[in-house]
Design a protein around this nucleic acid. Sequence first.
DNA 1: TGTACATCAGTGAACGCGCGTTCACTGATGTAC
DNA 2: TGTACATCAGTGAACGCGCGTTCACTGATGTAC
Lengths: 226, 226
Amino acid sequence: MSWSKDDRESPRGYHHGNLKEALVRAALELIAQKGPAGFTFAEAARWAGVSPAAPYRHFRDRDQLLASVALRGFNQFEAALARAWDDGLPDVFTALDRLGKAYLGFARAEPAYYSAMFEAGIPLAISPELREASDRAFAVLRAAAEKLCATTPAPNRPPALMVALHIWAMSHGIASLFGRGDAARRALPMSPEELLEAEVLVYLRGLGVAEAKPNGGPSASARNPN
Amino acid sequence: MSWSKDDRESPRGYHHGNLKEALVRAALELIAQKGPAGFTFAEAARWAGVSPAAPYRHFRDRDQLLASVALRGFNQFEAALARAWDDGLPDVFTALDRLGKAYLGFARAEPAYYSAMFEAGIPLAISPELREASDRAFAVLRAAAEKLCATTPAPNRPPALMVALHIWAMSHGIASLFGRGDAARRALPMSPEELLEAEVLVYLRGLGVAEAKPNGGPSASARNPN
DNA sequence: TGTACATCAGTGAACGCGCGTTCACTGATGTAC
DNA sequence: TGTACATCAGTGAACGCGCGTTCACTGATGTAC
């Protein structure tokens, strides 16, 4: 997120070369430092080493820049979730546990992306790409829910969409209440990861799918919440 | 939230009479309109019909005013939750369902309070009162979790603190992802209330406490999520 | 290979604006006697 | 009951500042011929 070699290596002349990219990175850095509110168009320009008028060549306004940040965030988020889920291999429960950890990991490692995506108040309707990117990210959760539900015999199989929304809500709830270490937070009896894992475990048992692996739980690091 | 009779009835002379109160209300109104970021000290003063220097008699800065808003928010939140929980009467499950609905109801009816409390980035450490108010609100969830856990035989009774945190995370997750109608949101197959109720039901079944009332579920409006 | 020209990305100066904050002040209120 | 005085809450003018936005401009790049 800080200056990388790429930014500095050629001392740039009149043309920046990759200003759009640099502005997105500047925005990320500023959001990380001061929250989505504490970032201004002018400061992003300064950060990119460019005059205050230059950003207007690339973004109509602040919101469009923020939307651009959120868009990249959703893409990276989707990639991280998909990588963790890995099509449910080697088994649904192990993969689901990885998925939850990836969710929390992303929120913690990329708080700027996360807040641009979920807390900055950018409406998804601002651009079709944004909505699509958001949908693709959710589709990973949805796919996981499908596979999970498929382990239950059809008669009382829960609706996968609902399960996906529940998993999302649990993950987001824990991420946004306890997931970012910096702010003065409530002391917890366990890490956010453990808390989420336990929550999902209980939930799965309630769905009637977790019984499939009664001995030891879904992953090596699982602890019995009882 | 808008001008009530109290504000207008005496046309006020040199002294406002209740400026502190009026500033808190102005902040609430402004936060409701434009989010916690889009509210300024100066505008709150204008809203209260007072010179821009006047607020300094009552608040050191913007953050202290925001903290004051959050403090009142926690107090009202606690009251609403406690009223809904009603000591777990007539039975734990009915009361818990009311509690969840009260949580979502508060977040929807008082988005300004809710975001000052959870999203404005005010650290709880800013004042002891704030932390205490927040603790008291959480204590209601905690009490509910205690009573819930007490329905399970001791040997594998889940830790109440963990259960309280889980319930909080579910409620907050749903409230902040789907709970506020205004922003362009994702289309849902059910209302946030139904979604949360179903989620908690599954979770309770997973805990092993919901079996106590297998027929019909915890409340009249409960739907079997299967 | 060289030249003319169009296009493009960034400049820098300027503007109006609202904000946060300060200051000496003044009008209102309450209290001591 | 009246007067003097202290305290307090709000005034209004002023300041420096950074922001968003515009404008005519200019340096660099690419392309046609």
